[in-house]
Simulated assay, not measured.
Amino acid sequence: MARHFDPATMWCVVQDHTRNRCRWWVVNDPTELKTFAHQATQAHSVRVLIGQYSISSPQWKSVPLREGGEYADIEYFRSQCIDIDIALYSERDANLLFGGSIGVAWRRTYRSEGIDPEPLYRWFHRFKRQWWKMMDPNFAPVYWGTAVRYEIPFPYPGSAAVSYGVVQRCLSGDLRLKVASYVYDIVTTEQAKAYQQMRRQLQCPEGKVWCRRCNGRGEIYLQRDHAIHLCLACNGSGCVSEEFCWCVRCEGSGVVWVPRADGGIETEDCPECGGRGFVVSYASK
């Protein structure tokens, strides 16, 4: 990331939950980012906000602490920055990579604050293309396996992980695992293909098929509140009846493509089903 950070034109702040949840570190030099590139015990440990001075300087607000006093927190929307959730390796298993993300808020959120989001969006798409170029084409993130829905004790606080080896053990009967998180296993592309072939052996019960709304994961991520929710279509099971009646408008995805004023397109919740993927009257089917 340091190669994309130019302190002359850009600003950067970092929140590291493993050090202090109530503090933002201001980064003035790209080499300082190495301070936060450490192994972590949980996902979403390190959050990086990066912005361009030509768009907006960082905006701050005072937030009171329960134990007294206050701390300076970022005004996220008014700062108009790119939000980077750094992917970090687990200390317990170097083969597992906690899933990171890169993004900005919805356009409508900025507009509700009286902010034109287009300059930020144009920069974000340029920045994202540069980010993708850093990815090694010889490796791929494996995300499937969430159809294995059995509970076992798991050492990761608040989350579980599915790796290539774990799926092999599930298929051999050595392990039963309940998946409840967004944790990736980075493997070679050949392993990723083999992994997906193995997943096909983990089929839904007879008379059921994979849920279209969550793709069998049992959970969905909603951008509107940046949170993971139980999939209402399958009630978290990952499978639905073969006769399940999906929304005709979005075909079960919960979203539709709509044109933007600038000629582009973007997604929004399906107006027919309200983003559920099915019509309410079908819920009992």
Rank of each mutant, 00 (worst) to 15 (best):
D185E: 11
P205E: 04
R129Q: 14
A160K: 02
G165L: 10
D185W: 01
S101N: 12
P117F: 06
A140S: 14
S163R: 00
V162N: 01
L120R: 02
R212P: 05
Q168R: 15
Q197M: 09
A194V: 03
I115Q: 00
L97R: 11
Y182M: 09
R122T: 15
Y110M: 08
A94R: 12
P205M: 08
P137R: 11
G99I: 07
A160T: 12
R129G: 06
Y110I: 05
A180H: 10
Y110F: 15
G207W: 07
R108Y: 10
F127H: 10
L120P: 00
G218P: 03
E118I: 12
S112C: 03
I102S: 05
D174Y: 08
W132E: 15
Q201Y: 03
V209E: 11
W123D: 02
K193G: 11
I115F: 03
C170Q: 02
P137Q: 02
P155A: 08
Y164H: 12
G103N: 07
S172E: 15
Y150E: 14
S181N: 11
Q201L: 13
V187T: 11
S101P: 01
E91F: 04
P153I: 03
G100D: 09
E206A: 14
S101R: 10
Y182C: 10
G218R: 02
R212I: 11
G207M: 12
Y121C: 02
G99S: 15
T188I: 10
G158I: 07
V209Y: 01
F127G: 05
A94Y: 04
V209T: 15
P157C: 07
C170T: 03
G145T: 03
Q197N: 15
P137S: 12
F98R: 01
V148W: 05
C170I: 15
A140L: 07
P157S: 13
G100N: 05
F127L: 12
V142D: 00
A180L: 07
W210R: 14
Y164N: 06
P117N: 09
C211W: 01
Q197R: 13
A105W: 08
V148D: 04
S181Y: 04
V183D: 00
I102M: 14
W144T: 10
P137A: 08
R122V: 13
S163F: 00
V209I: 15
G145K: 00
Y182Q: 10
G103R: 08
V166E: 00
F154D: 06
Y156G: 02
F98W: 13
P137W: 08
G173T: 11
V148I: 08
P155W: 12
Y121D: 02
P137N: 09
A140C: 09
C170L: 09
A180P: 01
G114L: 11
K208H: 13
W123A: 03
Y121W: 05
P205Q: 05
